[in-house]
Design a binder for these strands. Structure first.
Lengths: 115, 115
DNA sequence: GTAGAACCTACCGCTGACGTCAGGTGCAAG
DNA sequence: CTTGCACCTGACGTCAGCGGTAGGTTCTAC
């Protein structure tokens, strides 16, 4: 698959795919002419990246845990990082939930006024 | 209260407080010498900002909904914005939850391997 | 009245995940 | 063989929420 196909199928831009490679997240082979050639798994991998990006993980962290995904094993360091990230995400969810409650308060207060 | 006091009490930097003013979130009065003078409610307001920032609301949105908080009423436009933000936050929570599940999978898979 | 902490404005710097050129090359179709 | 789209590298631009610095002023304490 060429880069445009991966982009269309995964829903990210061509630029983003080149950026992911720059960050060490994708390692496509090259055609004799120098064009990137992606395997079938590339689309799923990109969707996986998007999920983690959406949870606030930076490229570095994603790159660090790719070996875990590929080998199915973790070093002590990787487990520590995974735990830290999971903790961070849980806290984030709490903060989002709290903020949501604050916005709800505003809505409810305004609704009461109108009632 | 002067800016340093507000900073210490609310846990944000002096620089951040000046930034909030620049964004129209705080409107302290000025002393004859030109120094910012904050009311007692400033600390709570800043904590409120932090909560919303933590949920991914940009300064603009926060500025837009401050009138709602102060007056306890909302215009149709403001209600639409509030609904959109609440929706966005709920989706974000879903995405965070999904990402958390993915990380959990990795941890569990690695744990199984070790077992 | 003077030291020094706290304040002021103005401005440049940083990070991250890309967007957006510019200028050149690869490749499939007719 | 040429059209023309897709691709390439390299490099600068963007946005948000501040951090940090420079150079000068105000306020508080003694």
């Amino acid at each position: 698959m060429r880069i445009g196909d991966v982009a269309r199928r995964s829903g990210v831009s061509v630029r983003a795919l080149r950026y992911y490679e720059e960050q060490g997240l994708l390692k496509p082979t090259r055609s004799p002419g120098g064009q990137r050639e992606y395997g079938e798994d590339a689309v799923d991998r990109v969707r996986f990246f998007q999920q983690l990006y959406a949870a606030g993980l930076p490229s570095r962290r994603i790159a660090e845990l790719l070996p875990c995904v590929d080998t199915g094993t973790t070093t002590a360091e990787q487990r520590a990082m995974l735990d830290a990230e999971r903790d961070r995400i849980r806290k984030q969810i709490d903060e989002y939930t709290a903020a949501l409650a604050r916005l709800d308060e505003i809505v409810v207060a305004a609704a009461d006024r109108r009632a």
